[in-house]
Amino acid sequence: MPRWGMIIDLDKCTACQACTVACLAENNVPFAGPEETSMGRAILWHEVIGGIEGEYPDLWATFIPRPCMHCDNPPCIKVCPVGATYRREDGLVMQDYDQCIGCRMCIVACPYEVRYFNWRNPQWPEPMDQYLNPDQGPPQPTGGRGGPDVRPRGVVEKCTFCVHRLEKAERKAQQEYREMSEQELTLLPACNQTCPASARYFGDLDNPKSTVSRLARGARAFRLLEDLGTEPKVIYLKEGR
């Protein structure tokens, strides 16, 4: 069983936000509009966070593309009262939209703030509503679908590492009696595929020969809020600062 993880090379990243946009389109993330966004109600499964650090004249800019960390020890799963968020055997942390009661405790528990609440019915302006992604995610424990299926109001959602694309590729490879190639894997999540700087990698962290596990062991590798013991599976690469 693989343990899917992502590598983001901050030394290559140009903070162009293409990943964020690709994610919005791929996963049918509803439009919040300027007013709701200014109130902090926008849903961004993937977000580029960062800003200027240091004190003049010693200043530097930090940009961190932030999907869900898919922690190996996820604080969100512990606190869910109904098991609406769960960890799959391949390490993906999933959200069951048909099970979620909307208590938002997982949002509070997540130190990375990767979880989003549907404050209202999902809506898209014309003509965006004509271009929703028809792909179906994998079946969830309660029978509904994960992935890009439209989420109802009142539930929590978040990045799935594009589980629907992953499963599709897995099925295809299986039918062709082959392993997924490194190249195929790296371009799997929509954010990775769209990255113009080729700063992102995706693959099996448990496979010692894979690019991701090699990079994860490298000297430039670090993880966000490592000291909290959440064991995130998104690993960043950075030389110094």
């Binding site: 869910c80 109904v82 009661i101 208590c103 609440f117």
Partner: peptide
């Protein structure tokens, strides 16, 4: 108040049918 706060009060019964003891909410 907790029920007012829920995003999906219609699914409240899941706290009993699918309740997880690990959650402080339970």
């Amino acid at each position: 108040q907790v029920i007012i706060d829920l995003g999906r009060p219609d699914r409240m019964i899941k706290l009993i049918t699918h309740g997880r003891l690990q959650s402080p909410l339970l």
